[in-house]
């Protein structure tokens, strides 16, 4: 039965894909190899759509793959199965944390984890900026494929969002401006 298959497969992905949405993609290729309701070329489309729609990429992929298998009920089944393992685990950790929040060992651990996590976020910021703006890679000459339009948009937005008057603006304002600029100037 397709729903049982979806539940088992996406529960497994949810359980084993550690470290965020992109970690689900290798597992989806395994699914494509195993079942006939998902082909590798469909999967390429799914990833493209997941990246060009709102929502976490991992969730988008699961929703689309589930839809492919069994329509909207399939989409719901796949998505809920994907989040169930982490839901259970986080509920347990959260209970533990609220109990041991004042514990010295827990606080000591987090005192180093927080700056480390900040570094990780900065690293993901760098990856996004590099992919979208500078496009540096070891294969091309320095800045050879850098998109000057993207650099200008990047600089303008960075300055704009750091002007005191505009600091409190909703992040969505920047996203909207960037989308409009992207369409107008054919990024």
């Amino acid at each position: 039965m397709i729903f049982l298959t979806l539940f088992i497969e996406f529960f497994k992905i949810g359980l084993f894909a550690i470290g965020g949405g992109l970690a689900t993609i290798p597992f989806l290729y395994e699914l494509a190899a195993k079942y006939d309701w998902l082909t590798p070329s469909q999967l390429a489309d799914i990833i493209a759509v997941a990246e060009s729609t709102p929502g976490p990429i991992g969730i988008n992929c699961a929703t689309y793959a589930g839809y492919n298998a069994a329509g909207v009920p399939g989409a719901i089944a796949a998505t809920l199965s994907l989040v169930l393992p982490s839901f259970i685990i986080i509920v347990i950790i959260s209970k533990f944390l609220s109990k041991y929040n004042e514990n010295t060992l827990v606080q000591r651990t987090f005192s180093v984890l927080r700056p480390a996590a900040t570094g990780l976020i900065a690293a993901s910021g760098w990856t996004v900026v590099n992919d979208a703006v500078f496009k540096l890679s070891s294969k091309t000459a320095l800045f050879a494929s850098t998109d000057i339009k993207a650099v200008i948009l990047f600089a303008v937005l960075l300055i704009f969002t750091n002007i005191k008057k505009f600091k409190k603006l909703h992040p969505l304002v920047s996203i909207g401006i960037a989308a409009a600029v992207g369409i107008t100037f054919k990024f």
Partner: peptide, 22 residues
């Protein structure tokens, strides 16, 4: 095409927003 252009722009904004968040 418009979706691709819009998202190429949005990705730049996301980069800026993450930097500001850091």
């Amino acid at each position: 095409a418009a979706v691709q252009h819009a998202f190429a722009g949005i990705r730049v904004a996301i980069g800026v927003l993450i930097i500001n968040a850091v």
